[in-house]
Design a protein around this nucleic acid. Structure first.
Lengths: 196, 196
DNA sequence: TTGACATGTGACCGTTCGTTCTCTATAATA
DNA sequence: TATTATAGAGAACGAACGGTCACATGTCAA
């Protein structure tokens, strides 16, 4: 039960921090939505800042486990349509998984005030997707599905626009459908442009 | 002198809000860095929130004046190298102009909590650049500098990666030089890909 | 010269914040 | 059964916050 409360505090902290920022979140409300009184928090964390640090530990560990390990290499598609399918699957996950959405929002808000949030933001927003797609494009070139080119440049040119539309979904969820269609259209346009 | 103080409060508010967010900014410090006491603020604004609203008014007006009016259409380059030069000039401005940098930071921080900040963020981060470059690419196609294609799609594919690197500069200023080089490399790669 | 207005000061207000403390209830352990 | 560790309740703390008010100062017009 003890660890359970601690986990629930962390989950709610991600929720609140991603909505109101660190400063805009107060532990009274946070604990109240757990049905507890604010002083109960101090049985599990030494301070508000300690919640923040634990949350970042968790986010960094989650990112490393999910995207950092080499066994999570993306499968190289066997056709152009396979790239579209793979892309749309990833986009669907990253747009609808609440924890991931909240993580991106939190990083957007706090990226300028915390060094670890800054580093993680660059991974989430720029280098992460690019580094995942670089070997994938290399593989597609080797298979003769894409013309020979700099795979890292292609990965950057491919993932950055998609990332921009994912941000749009975070910011304006009512535009999610439109964004998904734009991503698919972009993916197809990209393939048509770079096909062998 | 009165209006001067009001303008200086707004300038400092942009500074503080973009660094610490709205909640993380307190008027005592803000006015102290003007050499004034916090109650002096209430001679110029009715509340802290009123500063925020005035600041957003100013940001929206500035954006409209600079990018919204049709007479600010980008000139269509006469050569591929002209596109690179135009791009790098714009990038150089937007990365080094303090007011613009602070505006982007502020929008990153507050985009989820204020409707007007949300709208302005989408313009700054996504649609603004794209809509500026769409007629430019149309013009380059008409001149035979680029192959015929959907100019809006090209503008999106061109500006989104550049925007991502501009965000990197905001987040990690020590990587500014690297980012500028990456933007130039991307611009050249883009032209090579889409040249007629 | 006088009176109105604009600007800034400093004391003060109520509220909310994070944090600490003492006390209680419960469940596992010896 | 007696003991001890755990988890929460609730009162209270000092500090910081946004905001108000009476007052002083300077400027400019009547």
């Amino acid at each position: 039960m003890a660890n359970d409360t601690k986990e629930r505090i962390l989950a709610l902290a991600l929720d609140q921090f991603s909505q109101n920022g660190y400063d805009g979140t107060n532990i009274r409300e946070l604990m109240a939505s757990l049905g507890l009184v604010k002083s109960a928090m101090y049985r599990h964390f030494g301070s508000k800042k300690e919640i923040w640090n634990a949350l970042l530990d968790q986010m960094i560990a989650y990112y490393g486990a999910r995207f950092g390990s080499p066994e999570h290499l993306l499968p190289v598609p066997d056709s152009p349509e396979g790239l579209v399918a793979l892309t749309m699957g990833m986009v669907d996950f990253t747009i609808h998984d609440e924890k991931v959405v909240k993580t991106r929002k939190l990083l957007s808000i706090e990226q300028f005030r915390d060094d670890r949030a800054r580093d993680l933001a660059t991974k989430h927003f720029l280098t992460g997707l690019r580094d995942m797609f670089t070997p994938l494009f290399q593989g597609m070139m080797d298979k003769g599905l894409l013309r020979r080119d700099d795979p890292a440049m292609l990965a950057f040119a491919y993932t950055a626009p998609i990332s921009a539309l994912i941000h749009l979904c975070d910011r304006e969820p009512e535009k999610t459908e439109e964004a998904i269609q734009r991503i698919e259209a972009f993916s197809r346009h990209f393939i048509a442009t770079y096909k062998a």
